[in-house]
Design a protein around this nucleic acid. Structure first.
Lengths: 243, 243
DNA sequence: GCGGTTAATGACCGGCGGGTTAGGAATCCG
DNA sequence: CGGATTCCTAACCCGCCGGTCATTAACCGC
């Protein structure tokens, strides 16, 4: 009968490696340090993984596929929502209709789901954001952020067409601003021991986005809006329909 | 009479090094490649710089001090503006008063100035954002972003007190969202050959921020608004400094 | 051309760290 | 206890790359 393998070795290596990666980056992390942290020999590392990059690849693969699945589910759900309820338009914004509020609620739930995932992988996220340059994982972050920018742009354009969003805003820039905010938050999370109030964060961002993207007011002032916003804002002083 | 030094050697090394750093990261860049790109020997590198880190330190020092000076000037100018014109309040928002518009204009000019600077150092910015983990420059980006978050939070709070901004928004979260957007844009710039339309970008962000931070409307709807904002008021834990 | 001076070269040095492997360790069975 | 088997160790290997330094090269004045 052969010597039994240590059932905890592999997961211990993964944990220790993640800590070292977060501390020193993928390149700076040393096999010697990773194994020493588990009370294992350097050679034992290679019984489980062909390289530290391979180990990181496994972890980051789980992270990425989780994100992409969430993205896909989100798109499917929103598509379902739009099929069922139609796309909220200008009137929905003005009246804050039930379907508009439901739309906002869904968006928020999805944001929080993604942020929870990033929180679980905050160490990995840190490596991807601040330590991936010059590694094989460099393009991964672009893939993830580009996919998000794509999704948000697409939805934003549809809402613009339906009249719910200011038609003069550039969808891509808008989407980039959103994704950028997520990015900084994800890097900040890596520095925290305790989970931040993600709900507060998501609320603030949503508030900014919803209020900041209102379409300009009715036709006459809309023409004037070509010029500086000042003229557009004057007539808006009158409507106080923020109920 | 001694052999004259090549007057272009030093600047050629800096240029080549910056390209290699952008390509492979600070750690991945090799002295051999840097010098070869200049048609110089490996040993010649050490006639000008004690190490590649020292070279990068010089470049990044110029970048950082430029940013910090801009930050300082910005704060001084805004302070001067507030002294001269007072702090815009709720009425200024409603009427879009001249001082409020001037305030927006100043903010935009400062944003564009900073973005131009980042464009000039987009290669450096890339290294700082995606390749600084595990290097001596890791904390620099936090210093820069934290200073910006601090400045924006501070101004935001003053505007809240004056009634120009929604008092229920968390200043730090708001500031983080802004800074995050800048961060992503700066990383995106490193992938571009041609300068993007920074003006469009700054316009969009400003539009979002100004419209998204309007104080809530009078009492009736304000009561409704209180419920979801409660969470946003939780104090944000400051990220621990990494050592 | 020689001497003096500084710039630049490239062969060489040696520490670091990923990776290997012969041998030790742990386990069970007869 | 010995044998068989698999797990694990740690001494060792060796390529990489930052850094060094004896030598060559470039310049001027005499």
């Amino acid at each position: 009968m052969a010597r039994p393998a240590d059932p905890h070795a592999r997961s211990a290596l993964v944990s220790a490696a993640r800590r070292e990666f977060a501390r020193r980056g993928l390149k700076g992390a040393r096999i010697e340090d990773i194994t020493a942290a588990c009370g294992l020999s350097k050679g034992a590392f290679y019984l489980h993984f062909p390289s530290k990059e391979a180990l990181f690849g496994e972890v980051v693969g789980a992270f990425e596929s989780g994100l992409m699945e969430m993205n896909g589910r989100r798109m499917a759900r929103m598509e379902g929502f739009f099929q069922t309820h139609g796309i909220p338009g200008a009137q929905d914004r003005i009246e804050r209709s039930e379907r508009y509020l439901r739309f906002l609620q869904l968006e928020k739930e999805h944001d929080l789901e993604a942020l929870d995932w990033v929180w679980e992988f905050r160490d990995v996220s840190l490596v991807l954001t601040s330590g991936s340059q010059g590694t094989e994982f460099e393009s991964l972050l672009w893939r993830v952020t580009d996919a998000q920018v794509e999704r948000i742009s697409h939805d934003f354009r549809r809402l613009q067409e339906a009249g719910a969003m200011d038609p003069e805003l550039d969808a891509r820039i808008f989407a980039s601003i959103i994704v950028g905010s997520f990015l900084l938050l994800s890097t900040q999370m890596a520095r925290l021991d305790e989970k931040p109030d993600l709900n507060a964060w998501a609320n603030t961002l949503q508030r900014l986005c919803q209020e900041g993207t209102r379409p300009a007011s009715p036709a006459p002032s809309k023409r004037v809006a070509r010029r500086p916003r000042a003229a557009a804002e004057k007539p808006r002083k009158t409507p106080r329909k923020r109920s």
